[in-house]
Design a binder for these strands. Structure first.
Length: 347
RNA sequence: GGCGCCGUACCCAAGUGGUAAGGGAGCAGUCUGCAAAACUGCGAUGCAGCGGUUCGAACCCGCUCGGCGCCU
């Protein structure tokens, strides 16, 4: 018997009926697992573009530290939601969602399969499950609350939340000031408790038909890759990049500069510790981050996990990812075909 | 071969008779507009091993093992 390769079922651009189901392929996984590189190959195969779900790559001028794919490595594949704002701008999940939804719509209009890639769990969730209708962040209110938290101390500050929104308060630790601030901000802006908005919403939106592929590696191997990448970043100008951002006037305490790498390098440049200590902290904090990402993704439902072994060539991983995407599309096509035949039988 | 010092968790380490500090690393977790952020939790029933003294031993005594240093 001759074994034949299964012919590719789906044609590109996607059919009109398939587009109506809003198919969305998402690649998630911890930092340094190799998402970007694989995503580019997958995008080439499906003749589509990449929507980055990364809270740090949105900042202009932060390239080496955020491991932003280089122009050449992108191989002509357009990357969206990169270089959106300057580092002193506040960016957030709500803004991400708005931009991402628009970009995805444009891809559907061209009948392309959107490929979302990123390690920011909250951003991916807002895309797949929406965001409650609580008012967006207000910088003035937030700055004032921040000041009040500082002068009152966490216990008194937290007590205010207990008074106006006991449900949210019970879920937060008194010392978790940034989340207490957000909850008080919502109450101050809307007059309603954040828990009200959350209960009504419940992350129940399902705007897309998603396939979420989770890339993962053996913990030890992942940690080794993290350290190698950091050595590379330091050898390829991360110190200079950080210095340039500081020279441009971006403060160490702005969100962008508190990101991994920039924070430790800036502290080192300010003389807080020597180079060896900076490297040690940068690596450790990045390992901790990767671990937190895994904690987040582990409890996300319906992630199709793909373990990448150290000996495996990129092309091999890419093939496995492509296979799953094709199965997914074939499944959607099948659902669609099934619906059509049911309708035909009714006639 | 002799003498001396040392041996406490994965690593560093305090404790010298009253029931095992601390730090690092690690692990586990939380999360609805700053998320690469912010925040929470976790480690020795045992102090190299065995025996002894004592109401009570990481701590005192003896032997054994291991490390380091000096002497021959």
């Amino acid at each position: 018997m001759v074994v034949t390769t299964i012919p590719i079922l789906t044609m590109y651009p996607l059919s009109e009926t398939l587009i109506h189901l809003k198919p969305l392929v998402v690649i998630v996984g911890p930092t340094a697992v190799g998402k970007s590189r694989i995503a580019i190959e997958v995008a080439k195969r499906f003749e589509t573009e990449i929507v980055t779900a990364d809270s740090r790559q949105v900042y202009r001028g932060m390239d080496i530290g955020t491991d932003k794919p280089h122009e050449e490595s992108r191989q002509g594949i357009p990357h969206h939601l990169i270089d959106l704002v300057n580092p002193d701008h506040s960016f957030n999940a709500g803004l991400f969602r708005r931009h991402a939804v628009e970009t995805i719509e444009r891809l559907y209009q061209r009948r392309q399969l959107p490929l979302v890639v990123g390690g920011t769990g909250l951003y991916v969730r807002t895309l797949l499950q929406g965001l409650c209708e609580a008012p967006p962040a207000d910088p003035a209110v937030r700055a004032q609350l921040h000041e009040e938290a500082r002068t009152q101390g966490h216990d008194r500050f937290y007590a205010r939340l207990v008074a106006v929104d006991p449900v949210t308060a019970s879920k937060l630790h008194p010392r978790d000031t940034s989340k207490v601030i957000r909850a008080l901000e919502v109450h101050q802006l809307s007059g309603r408790a954040m828990s009200e908005f959350q209960q009504r919403h419940g992350f129940s939106e399902r705007p897309y038909s998603p396939l979420v592929i989770g890339l993962n590696r053996d913990r030890g191997a992942l940690y080794r890759r993290i350290e190698e990448r950091i050595d590379w970043q330091l050898a390829h100008g991360l110190l200079q990049e950080t210095q340039r951002l500081l020279d441009q006037g971006y403060k160490r305490n702005c969100t962008a500069m508190k990101g991994l790498g920039y924070r430790q390098v800036a502290a080192h440049l300010a003389g807080e510790y020597d180079q060896a200590e900076m490297v040690r902290r940068f690596k450790r904090d990045t390992r901790h981050f990767a671990k937190r990402q895994m904690t987040w993704f582990r409890r996300e439902p319906a992630i199709s996990w793909l373990m990448v072994s150290e000996s495996e060539a990129t092309a091999e991983t890419v093939d496995r990812v492509i296979h799953r995407v094709e199965q997914f599309l074939a499944g959607l096509d099948g659902v669609d075909a099934g619906q059509r035949s049911v309708e035909e039988n009714r006639r």
